[in-house]
Design a binder for these strands. Sequence first.
DNA 1: CATATGTTTCTTATGTATAAAAAACCAGGG
DNA 2: CCCTGGTTTTTTATACATAAGAAACATATG
Lengths: 294, 294
Amino acid sequence: MRTDTTFKRAFNDMIDIIRTSGLGEELPSENALRAQLGVSRTTVRKVLAAMSARGIIISEAHRRIIREQPRQIERYPKEETLAISEQVETSFMEWMLRGDACPGTEINEAELARKFGVATTIVREFLNRFQKYGLIERRQNAGWVFKGFTASFALELFEIREMFEMRSARLFATLPDSSPIWKQVRAIRAAHLELLADIDARFQDFSELDSRFHRLIVAVAPNRFIESFQDVIAMVFHYHYQWNKRDERARNEVAIGEHLALIDALESRNVALIDHACRSHLTSARETLLHSIV
Amino acid sequence: MRTDTTFKRAFNDMIDIIRTSGLGEELPSENALRAQLGVSRTTVRKVLAAMSARGIIISEAHRRIIREQPRQIERYPKEETLAISEQVETSFMEWMLRGDACPGTEINEAELARKFGVATTIVREFLNRFQKYGLIERRQNAGWVFKGFTASFALELFEIREMFEMRSARLFATLPDSSPIWKQVRAIRAAHLELLADIDARFQDFSELDSRFHRLIVAVAPNRFIESFQDVIAMVFHYHYQWNKRDERARNEVAIGEHLALIDALESRNVALIDHACRSHLTSARETLLHSIV
DNA sequence: CATATGTTTCTTATGTATAAAAAACCAGGG
DNA sequence: CCCTGGTTTTTTATACATAAGAAACATATG
């Protein structure tokens, strides 16, 4: 049966909401909470009921008062807030990147389901969605093949990436001053500088910033196929680098430098500069990835 | 439970095999048949058993003799040879293109399952796979939205298509004479001429030839992401044109002409010619598609 | 001993079941 | 009436069941 991860996530979020308010204060309406938590009212009510049951709030007629601050211990642990389908993703990536699978390995839905301790339906659904990353291939009536996280995967990936990002970066040259994108560019530059200033402590945050940066560039002229390809890139960097920590800090520092150079180039509106900055960042990113594969 | 479409398809294929042999002849071994039919030996045996039961063949110890020619009536009808998942694809496309769905429509798994008369699991699996075409989008815990077969879909599609095909076509200029691709190019030119000669009767065959042609061009330098994008294109042309028959014959005739021009250009190895031929074909294809949308 | 057939076991495709979550519906109070 | 909270209905996520199909194993026969 369905797991109650939505409820648990909402419960944790509600704790944060309550902590920003004082004792005795009244909570917003169910509808307002629904919007804040991003879940249905049904779930809000379930959370409120749980809060009541724990004595954190008091439900009077048509209002709920905060009675005592919830303690952090009451939070549900992170794992329990992940839908089974998300857990499967993690398990699969781990299985794949830990090297249990070499190129050409046959993937067996039933076996994976047993290994991960979930129903076959879910594994199947995952594989269907995962197919778009180009790492597995379906065989009629006979499972899947793992094609391998290989050099040719990386090269094919970067061939497309270069086409897409060069196309987008160039468009910045003709982007009017009035475009709201420029504001986001400045904001993301600031975020880069901030991260750079604290690189020793926060170098692990780069992966997410990287993805945001490239999505911003590509958003200059929206195209659903390009955007969906960004998911592939994000997946690769997110997971692959979790398993290849070598030189992580230095690598990220270099990349930040290249991003900043590209931002400068974009703002210059000079196509030649943009081309150069974009291409050299992509080249260096490709080399880094290739390096970590072999 | 699982349907026996594999068996029925194999049964039909076996009829064709038997019809090419004479009465009294002996059939190949189970293993040989397995390879010919592209199914497992389990299924081969089931087919042989069915043939025996119908008196078409006689199973003696370790050999099977053809006793009488099967009649065409014994074939299973086409519909019964399609896996449920394939039927769902057709039903969905029909639902979508017949116009029951306008952009922004919410897609309801349960409702579709009822409408198509299949299990929800299958609809869900289909939608997950179908997602890559960029026509639907998933919303967390709340079904899917149909984004519409709109002009912007066509434009985004063609933006990518142009990047990919121009890149591939240009590569032909530097392709060595020795490449086996040239032989395929000549073969596909012949196929085009053949179809053109008989265009009045066979204009419906173009869709498949079109897909083969573009896949060939793109295969000059294999890239899994480009190849997978060809699926999107093939889907669009295959289904969309099934529902827009206006000027079909003329349209296809024009496209054949453009293909032949592109083939000439490729063989010339002249980049400027290639560029021109490729771009003008894509432009005209885009206009045709846009036209048929509004 | 190699190859073909007979048998058993495992996997996939597809249906059904059900708790959780979302949505729709409804009644009461400002 | 609009909003709020209570109730009912519908849909989604996930587990489980099973026939069809694939694969592995075993035996026999030339």
